[in-house]
Amino acid sequence: MWIYKYDDQFIYMPGEELNVNENDVIPENYTEIPPPLESYIAKYDPRSRKWKETASQNYIDSLKTKPAPNDLELLKKQNALLSKQLTKLLAMRKGGTSE
C-alpha cells in the first residue's frame, strides 16, 4: 500500500510517498490516506484523518497561466499597430507630426 508524507506542519510532501506492506507499521509523519489529486497545498488533519486545501485563492490564481491570444486577437493588435504607424508616416509626409 502507498503511504503519503507530510511535514511538521502537516503539509503534504509530494514525491516522498512510500510503498509498504499492509502489515508494516506506518512511520511517523506518514498516512495511508491519499491527498486530493487536485490540491495546491494539502494539509493533513490527523484527528479527522482528512486532507484539506490551505492555499489561498490568490496563490492558486498566481499559478495559472493566461491562455495565448487567438489568431483573431493577434490580427486585431497587428492591425492597430500598423494603422498607428501608417498614420504617423502620412503625417510625416505632409510635414506634420501625429503623436
Score class of each variant (00 low, 15 high):
K94I: 05
K88P: 14
D45G: 02
P35E: 04
D45A: 12
Q78A: 02
T97L: 07
L18Q: 11
E28H: 04
S98M: 07
V25N: 06
Y4C: 03
E73C: 11
Q57A: 09
E99P: 12
E99K: 14
L63P: 10
T31H: 03
I60D: 03
Q78M: 12
T97G: 06
I60S: 09
T97Y: 02
E28F: 12
S56T: 15
M92G: 09
V25E: 13
E32H: 07
E28K: 07
P36D: 14
T54N: 11
I26F: 08
K64E: 09
F10L: 05
K52R: 09
T31R: 02
G96W: 08
P14L: 03
E73S: 07
I3G: 10
E17F: 02
E32T: 13
L81K: 14
P14Y: 10
K88T: 13
M1E: 09
E17S: 04
T87P: 00
A55C: 07
N23R: 11
L18C: 08
Y12A: 01
A80F: 12
D8W: 01
Q9I: 02
L37M: 11
Y12F: 09
I41P: 06
M13P: 00
A91Y: 05
L90N: 10
E28I: 01
Y40H: 12
K76C: 07
T97K: 05
K94N: 02
K66I: 15
P36N: 09
W51F: 15
N79A: 11
L86E: 05
A68Y: 06
R47I: 04
F10T: 04
R47S: 06
Q85G: 10
Y12K: 02
L75I: 08
T65P: 07
W2L: 10
A80M: 04
P36F: 11
L18N: 10
L81I: 12
M13Y: 09
E28R: 12
I41K: 14
R93M: 05
A80L: 14
I33S: 08
K66L: 13
N21E: 10
T54Y: 10
S62D: 07
F10M: 12
I26K: 00
M92V: 05
E16V: 04
W51R: 04
P34T: 06
A68N: 06
K5H: 14
V25P: 00
D24W: 01
S98Y: 12
A91F: 02
P27T: 04
Y4N: 00
Y59S: 12
I41Y: 13
A55K: 08
L63W: 01
L82Q: 05
Q85H: 14
Y6I: 01
Y6F: 14
S62F: 00
Y40D: 08
E22V: 00
P67E: 14
L18D: 05
I11A: 03
E17Y: 00
A42K: 01
K84Y: 09
K52S: 14
